[in-house]
Every structure is written in structure tokens, then in C-alpha cells.
Amino acid sequence: MEGATDIFVRLRPRLLGVAYRMLGSLAEAEDVVQDVWLGWNDAEYSQLADPEAWLVTATTRRSIDRLRLARTDREHYVGIWLPEPVLTGESPATPEQLQEASSDLSIAFLTVLERLAPEARAAFLLREVLDTDYDEIARTLDKSEAACRQIVHRARSQLREERPRYVVSAEDHQRLMRRFAQAWSDADLPAMKAMMAESATLVGDGGGIVTSFPKPMVGGERIAQLLFACTLRRKHELRLELASINGRLGVLRYFGDVLESAQSYETDGERIVQIHVQRNPEKLRRISAQQASIPTGVDVYSSNGAFNRTSTIEGAR
């Protein structure tokens, strides 16, 4: 039989995934899971019919409490708040293998979830992402099954128009991102414009620490020109790395040895439709530490347009 520690270690990635999807912050998710671990040590686990259900319930409830507190802080956040990005894929640096095959970790999806109240977010994630039965959701939220069904229904309706609309294969997404990164590093503005949807949007998070846009920028041509202008101003320092960010291929933009932003892209397979740019240094600290040296498994585009593939990109799924 598994001991208490063995059970927790085996389920920790799932618990961390639940907390991260609830909070949009890996640092806060790790704190929640640590709290759950302390409670687990005090629990009579041998008397539990379903230890996994107990742990998921405890994680969800603590995440709801943490999110209620966090939402107050986010109301006073300077500029637009975006989730903390995480590197995903086959790299050993991947935080606890957060991705699960049937789950959605994209920055676009997590950003949309911010529109939901804490309990609604929990019910929606448990049902739509983790495929949890309504009876278990009811026990987790201490509500009736009928109430939980209504919460999930309302959440679906609230998010219907805002959830990412495109289902794009990893291969098509990667192909477009490699073409775009090459055009960007070559300062090829016409090619960059051609790969942007006319109605594309760019959303940035500077956290009041570095400059960013106070509201989304709309228009593919304007966005391409913005990225192009940044390249011209500091072209000798620019380095672009393609990396799997929250399960999809995105861009890490460096100026010299400093990570300036982590950029997550939504595409329709042919053009870029949305970019989320995380510039807040506090939310980039983990990635900066992981990428202290150029790892294997990334495509690197240097400021002179030269391209060096250290190996095939893994894990963009």
C-alpha cells in the first residue's frame, strides 16, 4: 500500500495544475499545494475512501480562498493583469509537468477565466477541464448538484464569446511561429504584416514596473509595426527564442542577456490573431532562472538574422 507521502507526491502535479489554473500564478499555486500538504499530514488518510478526491477538494477550496484575496489586489493592479507564464514541454526545467493531455493551459484561456467569480471558476474548471462529476463538484463547493450545474451553465454562457475560437494543430502553429520569428529577426516588415490578422490584438502586462499598454492594441498592421520598431531600435541586442509557453509555441524576447518579455500567441493556423506579452519582471523571474543559458530544444533567432536550431522543439502541445 502507498504511504501518505507517496500518495501526495504522485498527485502533486495534478494538484499544482488545479491551483495554477485557478490562480494564474505558479508561485501562489505552489503555496496552496504546500498548505494542502500540511493538512494532508494531519488527515487520517487511511480512513479516506478516495484520497485523490480529498486532495483535489482541499486544493480547490484553498485556491478559492486565495483567489478571493488575490482579486482584491488585482483590482488595484497597474495596467492589465495577465497570468504568470510557465515553460512547458519535455525540458527538465518544466515546473512539475504542469500540462495534462486534455487540459487547457494557454494564457488566452486563463485570462478569459479571470472574468469568473472564484466559485464559478472552480466549478467550470472541475467540469470542463478536469471532467469531474457534478456530485463531486457539489461536495467540493458544498452546494447542491443542481446549483453546480447552474453555475457551470452560467460560466459557459459568460465565456462563450471570449474563449479562444480556433482549433489549430501544433504543427501548423509551430510552422507559422517559426516563419514569424524568422521574419521578425530579419526585420522583414512586409512579411510580419502578412502573418498578422487584420483584427489581431496585443495585450501587455508591465505590472507598473515596466512600461506597457494600458489597454489592448488592435490591428495587425499596427502590432507588426510596433514589434518592427523595437527591433530597429535595439537590433544589435535582440535575440528571439521559440519556446513552449503554457503548452503552445511562443517567443521569449531578450535584449542582450536580459529576458524582456514572454509572448504567447494565438493563431488560426494561417495568421496571428492574438498576442499576450508578459513584461512584468516579477512574473518573468522563474523563466529567467530556467533560461539562464540557452537550452537544448529551442530555436534561436539572433539580432543579425542568423538562425540556429539547437534541436527540434519539444512539447508544444
Rank of each mutant, 00 (worst) to 15 (best):
F109M: 13
L110C: 06
L110G: 12
L110Y: 05
T111R: 06
V112W: 02
L113E: 05
L113K: 01
E119G: 01
A120V: 07
A120T: 09
A120W: 10
R121I: 12
A122Y: 15
A123F: 08
A123M: 07
L125A: 07
R127E: 08
R127I: 05
R127V: 05
E128P: 09
V129Y: 11
L130N: 15
T132Y: 03
D133F: 02
Y134Q: 02
Y134T: 07
D135N: 07
D135M: 04
E136I: 12
E136K: 12
I137W: 02
T140M: 00
T140D: 02
D142A: 01
K143T: 11
K143L: 15
K143N: 11
E145D: 15
A146W: 14
A147L: 11
C148G: 04
C148K: 06
R149T: 12
Q150K: 07
I151Y: 13
I151D: 02
V152Q: 01
V152P: 09
H153V: 11
H153N: 15
A155H: 05
R156M: 10
R156K: 06
Q158V: 12
L159R: 04
R160Q: 14
E161W: 12
E161T: 15
E161A: 09
E162H: 14
R163Q: 14
R163D: 09
P164Q: 02
R165T: 09
R165G: 12
R165H: 03
V167K: 03
V168W: 05
V168T: 07
S169R: 08
S169V: 02
S169P: 04
E171S: 10
E171R: 10
D172N: 15
D172L: 10
D172V: 03
D172I: 04
H173E: 11
Q174K: 14
R175P: 06
L176T: 01
R179C: 03
F180V: 04
A181E: 12
Q182T: 08
A183D: 06
A183N: 05
W184G: 03
S185H: 02
S185N: 08
D186H: 08
A187L: 01
D188A: 00
L189I: 09
P190K: 08
M192C: 03
M195R: 04
E198T: 14
A200L: 08
L202N: 05
L202M: 15
G204P: 00
G204Y: 12
D205T: 03
G206Q: 04
G207I: 13
V210S: 06
V210T: 14
S212C: 09
F213M: 11
P214T: 08
M217Q: 15
G219H: 11
G220D: 05
E221M: 09
I223A: 10
Q225I: 14
L226F: 15
L227H: 07
L227F: 01
L227C: 12
L227W: 05
A229E: 11
